[in-house]
């Protein structure tokens, strides 16, 4: 995959907090990344690592209050999404950046027909005659592979299966030919065969339409088959940024290693699954040290004093870790010693 060198989206130092009754939750802490034109970027991490909040912050879709975007820039086509006025941002939402959400069961309005929900998006960004927009909606349903689309246009969401609803969500997100498609765990709520279908669909659509895709997931198998580059998030920060093949061959951050090691394997039978010991970090205090340090098998004193910054370790990779040379675990799944190392913590 050749990647255009000028990014379509450049995010710098994005910081989002939630001011809740229990205190301030530091959900996203200084996240920076680039998204190249036509690139598929996978964002992985545990629940609560800030993947979704990061992406929703970009379009300011987090509820404010309690959410608050404290700092950062998100340059999209030369303009900062985080500081532009709401009217301009609305042109980007749905027009240039399409969003697919996790749960297709609840993400569609239950009392509005599928056709009207697609047309609604068209009416905002590409207003035209109603008939023409209906026709475009029909075309979109065909594009996402919905059988007998004429009938489906008049259906209510409850009349469709989960997979079909997610296809409708994709049709809505793609309605106005966006430059970027953000997919927030779009297959999590679906069963495995439907997951595969949706994955294939997005793959095909990306090749056909050429938009960049940000795919949020916690399924590393999905990442391997779909994405060009991986961002690993932990505790509201990006801890590793690597091309997908290099990431699988040689994860650099101890957390990435742990993630890969915990994948169940087809070759080692009867063993207990490997896990990363400990709990995800409490985000109620601002990170002053490496947030992974308490769970890291390689942690040393500097990790408790300073929070590592995301730094380039090669032309294509960035890692946020104080270890100069992280022990390399090649083929984490088959290596018994690697499992032991990562699994036991400290």
């Amino acid at each position: 995959m050749t990647v255009d060198p000028t990014p379509v989206l450049r995010v710098t130092d994005l910081t989002t907090r939630f001011n809740t009754q229990d205190g301030t939750v530091h959900a996203v802490n200084g996240v920076s990344f680039d998204l190249a034109d036509g690139e598929v970027l996978g964002v992985v991490g545990e629940s609560g690592s800030g993947k979704s909040v990061t992406m929703m912050s970009l379009l300011r879709l987090i509820p404010t209050p309690p959410g608050e975007i404290l700092a950062g820039q998100a340059i999209f086509e030369g303009d900062d999404l985080l500081s532009m006025d709401l009217g301009d941002l609305r042109k980007v939402r749905g027009g240039k950046v399409g969003f697919i959400f996790q749960d297709p069961m609840t993400s569609l309005n239950p009392v509005v027909t599928v056709g009207d929900q697609i047309v609604e998006s068209l009416a905002v960004h590409q207003p035209g005659r109603r008939k023409a927009m209906r026709l475009r909606a029909l075309e979109l349903l065909q594009l996402v592979g919905i059988p007998s689309p004429e009938e489906r246009l008049r259906c209510y969401p409850y009349e469709l299966s989960g997979g079909m609803r997610q296809r409708v969500m994709i049709a809505i997100a793609l309605a106005c030919n966006p430059k970027v498609l953000v997919a927030d765990e779009p297959t999590t709520a679906l069963d495995v065969t439907i997951q595969a279908q949706i994955l294939e669909l997005v793959k095909g659509l990306r090749e056909k339409l050429g938009m960049a895709v940000i795919w949020i997931t916690h399924d590393l198998g999905v990442v391997a088959g779909l994405v060009d580059r991986v961002l690993v998030m932990y505790g509201g920060q990006i801890v590793e940024d690597a091309p997908v093949d290099e990431f699988y061959a040689q994860p650099r951050h101890p957390y990435s290693q742990g993630l890969l090691a915990s994948l169940p394997s087809a070759t080692s039978r009867g063993d207990k699954l490997v896990n990363i010991q400990g709990q995800p970090p409490d985000l109620r205090s601002a990170p002053a040290s490496c947030s992974f340090a308490p769970r890291c098998p390689h942690a040393f004193d500097r990790c408790d004093r300073e929070n590592p910054v995301l730094a380039a370790v090669s032309a294509t990779r960035k890692v946020a870790c104080w270890l100069d040379e992280v022990p390399v675990l090649v083929g984490a799944q088959s290596d018994e010693t690697a499992k032991g190392q990562v699994g036991h913590g400290r």
Partner: peptide
Amino acid sequence: EDYVRTARSKGL
């Protein structure tokens, strides 16, 4: 509800 977020994400 989630569909409200969807509506906002459409630029309404």
